[in-house]
Amino acid sequence: MSASSSSKPILGISACLLGNTVRYNGGHKESRLCSRTLSDHFDFVAVCPEVAIGLGTPREPIRLVGDPASPRAVGSVQPDRDVTLPLAEYGGRMAGELGSICGYIFMQKSPSCGLERVKVYQQGGKPSEPAGRGIYAAAFCARHPNLPVEEDGRLNDPVLRENFISRVFAYAAWQQLQVDGISRHRLLSFHARYKYLLLAHNPLQYKALGQLLGSMGRQDVAELAPRYFGALMAALKNCATRGSHSNVLQHLSGHLKQSLSRDEKIEVTQLIEQYRHGIVPLVVPLTLLKHHFRQHPDPYVAGQVYLQPHPENLGLRNAL
């Protein structure tokens, strides 16, 4: 599956973020980014683990208590009501049922769904430094370590939003590769398409993964492929910078050195430098390069996911 595929990738999402009235107070936390923008490009599976385990709406809120590294979820009014095990078991169950999703957007700071920085209360009612993780989210993510996950609030940051969506489409492409069947040739072709995106996100892993696949002839591809993909997803989680993007743009322009006039080369170089110094967004030099590659096609460059890792009309690179 690619960013241009007609079928939408599927995302898990905390139900309250879609406007469902499932919160403890009978309200919701609708995210317009999710419900009105991302919904055009993704299908959502909405989940509220607290409702799913039988807690009503409205209900007594729960909170995390105890050791921040291994907290318990209990009632905030009736602390003897411990729902840690039901939430964890439901997280494991849903991890098995939602095998087709390509990512998950969790409700931040939630004792069930928060990914990080959740308050964990100590004796006397005072919270520790926000360092906990929601019980459901922890159980779910433990079963899917490579799955792109993010909290709704962090998606307001354009760099984090673009990074998450890029990883979602990479995950979807890997799922399609698994459906097609992973062979040595297909794995090498997959890696070739992701080289420049990988270079932008993590230059060191760009080299390491190339070396890993270089030794593939001596290894079982069925054993190597999961290792490769785990390392790829970890590398892509690293946010690309203006410097690393500029490096990739220069690599791309190198494919045009025999095709462009002197003035065209100067223009490309100037725009890359303007981007590097924060004068123009990434979309500006990238659009010019795409224009030149339409005039001077290059099969290797045409296959690079970096040129369009997600739908253009999301405008994710307009703010980078």
Results as ranks from 00 to 15, higher is better:
Y228N: 03
K257E: 14
R59A: 04
I105E: 06
S253K: 11
A95W: 00
K195F: 09
F140E: 07
E273H: 11
A302W: 09
F106D: 05
D40G: 09
R32Q: 09
D298N: 02
H245L: 06
A200L: 05
N202C: 14
S259A: 14
F164Q: 08
L286A: 05
L212F: 00
V45C: 13
G254V: 02
R93D: 15
G210T: 00
K265E: 13
P311I: 15
R133W: 07
Q123F: 07
R161F: 03
L197C: 04
S2A: 11
G254A: 10
S31C: 07
Q219A: 15
A73M: 04
H277Y: 13
L288Q: 02
N25W: 01
P49R: 06
E264S: 13
A15D: 09
D298K: 00
N247W: 00
D152H: 06
V283C: 12
I101K: 10
W174A: 11
Y300K: 13
S4F: 12
Q78E: 10
A95D: 04
I279Q: 14
Q274A: 14
V22S: 14
K109C: 01
F169K: 08
H291C: 03
R117P: 05
H310I: 07
A170Q: 14
W174K: 02
V120E: 02
T21V: 04
G153Q: 10
K265Q: 14
A231I: 09
V22R: 05
G254N: 13
L256D: 07
C34R: 01
E267H: 03
G75E: 08
L160E: 04
G27Q: 05
L187T: 09
L232A: 02
D82F: 08
S6Y: 11
G181K: 04
P49A: 10
S31D: 07
L155N: 11
L320T: 15
L236G: 00
R193V: 01
S7Y: 12
N238V: 02
E116P: 02
L147I: 07
R186L: 06
G12D: 08
L188T: 01
A88E: 14
L147A: 11
V301F: 00
E30S: 15
R276E: 10
A234I: 01
L232W: 00
G66F: 05
G26A: 08
D67N: 12
K29N: 13
N313R: 13
M94D: 08
A222M: 11
G278D: 02
Y171F: 12
K109H: 10
G153Y: 06
G54Y: 07
P58K: 08
